[in-house]
């Protein structure tokens, strides 16, 4: 049987399949539909300093092989998150990565500090610097290398836990942002957040999302995700976590080959809450059929025609 364990920083994960932020709540809501403990890790919905209502509807729309969302970081806020969610992680049976979003450097730091001073089994933080759907949702960090580096460094000063910077594909050169995260002291980067998209109903002439543009996810963006992961993998020495349109074990394999150490499953979870579990099973099947000893041997092993 293939060894699915992978390592990021000092942490060993039981397998490389995580949930993607915003598609699995805080990790505790769907336990009756899937065995959460099977997952390599849960990445929570973005948590901000204060509670957020999110954007007005319509917030989601289906598009060919994908969907556009513009939720607007609706979340309970860090105080309530600490009070109500963190205690539930004691018996969750898997690793928890808390996703943090903010509008200013201070806000990101405040959220992280509030969680750092309490005891919890959160193993790391994914820092959302790439939300496309709120005016000040961190995107100003995600498009700017020096701000990315500064934010990463500030986070690094404040925690020993994993720091994963979540990168946006909606930039001119993602590799420079990835390098900035590495220079700032990040343990890993995750890519890609959603791709800016738009949907129009020709019948009514209406834009289908309140904020006009939203974030495109699902199989429609898988090729973009693969190319991005491959580019980032070649430009940094820290692990890359790949996401964007993963719905099967073979999709996950493709991301690993492109250079990912682990993957996150998002939109697929909306169709089947146990999508992550299925993907883990399919990874095992793939590993067995190819007699792969360690899944980590796949990382970056893609054969390209040119260097």
């Amino acid at each position: 049987m293939t060894d699915l364990r992978i390592k990021i920083g000092d942490i060993t994960f039981s397998n490389p399949v995580f949930t993607a932020s915003g598609t699995f709540g805080y990790g505790t809501e769907v336990s009756d539909l899937t065995d959460v403990s099977k997952l390599g890790a849960i990445v929570t919905k973005s948590v901000t300093l204060f509670p957020r209502e999110g954007n007005p509807p319509p917030r989601v729309v289906e598009t060919p092989a994908g969907m556009i969302n513009s939720i607007g970081l609706a979340n309970v806020g860090v105080e309530r998150y600490i009070r109500e969610m963190i205690p539930l992680y004691d018996n969750i049976g898997t690793k928890v990565i808390m996703n943090i979003a903010g509008t200013t450097l201070e806000e990101y730091c405040d959220v992280l500090e509030k969680v750092e001073v309490i005891s919890s089994n959160i193993c790391g933080y994914e820092i959302n610097i790439s939300c496309p759907n709120v005016k000040k949702g961190g995107m100003q960090f995600g498009v700017d290398s020096s701000m990315t580096e500064a934010l990463t460094a500030e986070m690094r000063k404040r925690t020993e836990r994993l720091i994963i910077m979540k990168l946006s594909p909606n930039v001119t050169d993602i590799t420079s942002i990835a390098k900035a995260a590495e220079n700032g002291g990040a343990d890993a980067v995750s890519a890609i957040n959603t791709v800016v998209g738009m949907s129009i109903d020709s019948e009514t002439g209406k834009s289908q999302i309140y904020t006009t543009y939203g974030g495109l996810s699902g199989p429609a963006i898988k090729p973009i995700g693969l190319a991005t992961v491959h580019k980032v993998y070649q430009s940094v020495n820290i692990p890359v976590i790949g996401l964007g349109g993963i719905t099967t074990g073979l999709d996950a394999v493709e991301y690993l080959l492109a250079g990912a150490v682990a993957v996150q499953v998002g939109t697929a979870t909306f169709r089947h809450a146990d999508a992550g579990e299925q993907i883990i099973n399919e990874l095992h099947q793939f590993g067995d059929s190819k007699s792969i000893e360690k899944i980590s041997s796949l990382t970056g092993a893609v054969k390209t025609y040119t260097k």
Partner: peptide, 17 residues
């Protein structure tokens, strides 16, 4: 009626004012 992605409160897509 509303457009929904998950139907179980996870995606936060089917907001109503």
């Amino acid at each position: 009626e509303s457009y929904m992605a998950c139907g179980i409160g996870i995606c936060q897509g089917c907001a109503i004012k």
